Computed example of a mutant assay.
Amino acid sequence: MDRQSRPWRSVLYIPGSKERALEKATGLAADAIIFDLEDAVAVEEKPRARQLLAQTLKTRDYGGRARIVRINGLDTDWGRDDVLAFAGIEIEAILIPKVNSAADLDAVAALIPGVDLWAMMETPLGMLNAAEIAAHPRLTGMVMGTNDLAKDLGSRFRADRLPMMAGLGLCVLAGRAHGVTLIDGVYNAFKDAEGLLFECEQGRDMGFDGKTLIHPDQLAIANTAFAPSEAEIALAARQIEAFDAALAAGQGVAVVDGKIVENLHIVTAKATLAKAAAIAALAGGEGL
């Protein structure tokens, strides 16, 4: 399944150093996995984690789940070797931490041809340069690093995430302008289902494709929040049917539930049905 058509509702971080977690991830209902060699791995464990993860991705089947490797930055002792270790291994993307400009992507692109790049958007400078980053020819995904962004902003926690809305909004605009997959940041209180649901719905309504997660218990909420509901699927089907009937009658608009339906609504309706079909295919035919 290609990037454009696959679901990205739930993107679960898995430490690259934890063999048991790497094994367990093969049975989790995540649309994608970020295998983390950066924040989740202690300094003394980084070379071993790199070797373990590379061998695991060569030999273990993760079904239809997209596989993304978050490397250490090239300004660290481990970043360059991280990139080179995954050359020739089938993965969806290399995720680069703390991307500030397109030059950060160029440096990784030069080391590993033929692999998509994703950018962690987690610094004020990165947010200000979101359009330049999203336009990079090798970039296909952006992941919000909201914890680091909050640290750099010096902002306090708010359930509505108002302090970081400017940065998140810039990334959504840039990503949509350049056809980039957009993944919202993590929700730290993994036992707080109500708070997670609120933040998933907020991110979904902003335009994000899915959410990064830190615990398997968060998967079901994200998968539900970022999927079309039964009501949305039914409405989309009725809109398409009514619009087709209107066109057949020589009219340019239809009315469904007292609301005008034009061609732009049909584009959205068809996207809704396509997403629902992709989710069903992923769950039923590709190992989730």
Results as ranks from 00 to 15, higher is better:
275 K>I: 04
272 T>D: 01
65 R>N: 00
37 L>W: 09
158 R>P: 01
245 A>G: 11
20 R>C: 01
59 T>A: 14
125 L>D: 05
100 N>K: 14
209 D>N: 15
273 L>W: 00
231 A>N: 06
98 K>M: 11
66 A>K: 12
18 K>N: 15
17 S>V: 09
120 M>R: 12
184 D>Q: 14
57 L>Q: 01
210 G>S: 06
270 K>L: 04
250 G>N: 12
205 D>N: 14
206 M>W: 11
271 A>F: 05
90 E>R: 14
207 G>H: 04
5 S>D: 12
41 V>F: 13
48 R>V: 13
126 G>T: 01
117 L>V: 05
14 I>K: 03
207 G>I: 06
114 G>V: 07
150 A>Y: 10
87 A>W: 01
82 D>F: 03
164 M>L: 15
234 A>I: 02
21 A>D: 10
162 L>S: 14
7 P>V: 00
198 F>E: 15
184 D>V: 11
21 A>N: 12
20 R>H: 09
184 D>W: 05
242 A>Q: 07
180 V>M: 07
203 G>A: 15
8 W>V: 07
251 Q>D: 15
95 L>D: 06
3 R>N: 11
149 L>P: 03
22 L>K: 06
251 Q>Y: 12
144 M>L: 15
189 A>G: 03
83 V>A: 11
157 F>P: 10
78 W>H: 15
84 L>M: 11
154 G>C: 09
10 S>H: 04
222 A>R: 02
266 I>R: 12
278 A>W: 03
30 A>I: 05
285 G>K: 12
57 L>H: 01
96 I>Y: 02
23 E>M: 13
224 T>E: 15
83 V>S: 07
48 R>D: 13
43 V>M: 15
70 R>W: 03
150 A>P: 08
120 M>T: 09
206 M>V: 13
34 I>Q: 09
282 L>H: 08
19 E>P: 06
226 F>N: 08
46 K>I: 00
188 N>C: 12
18 K>Q: 14
244 D>P: 07
83 V>Q: 04
53 L>H: 08
38 E>V: 10
109 A>T: 07
111 L>F: 06
129 N>R: 07
282 L>G: 04
91 I>L: 10
162 L>Q: 15
208 F>N: 00
220 A>W: 06
253 V>K: 14
41 V>M: 04
150 A>D: 08
171 C>N: 13
3 R>A: 13
48 R>L: 10
48 R>N: 14
185 G>M: 10
76 T>V: 04
10 S>Y: 05
60 R>D: 02
138 R>E: 06
59 T>G: 03
40 A>R: 00
169 G>L: 08
63 G>E: 05
137 P>Q: 00
96 I>N: 02
218 Q>M: 12
214 I>Y: 01
277 A>K: 11
193 A>N: 05
137 P>W: 01
65 R>M: 12
17 S>P: 01
224 T>M: 12
163 P>R: 10
78 W>G: 00
264 L>D: 09
2 D>V: 11
47 P>K: 11
184 D>F: 07
235 L>F: 10
185 G>L: 08
234 A>T: 15
62 Y>R: 09
71 I>E: 07
46 K>E: 00
167 G>Y: 04
86 F>N: 08
10 S>R: 02
241 E>L: 14
65 R>D: 00
99 V>W: 09
118 W>E: 01
146 T>C: 11
52 L>N: 10
58 K>S: 14
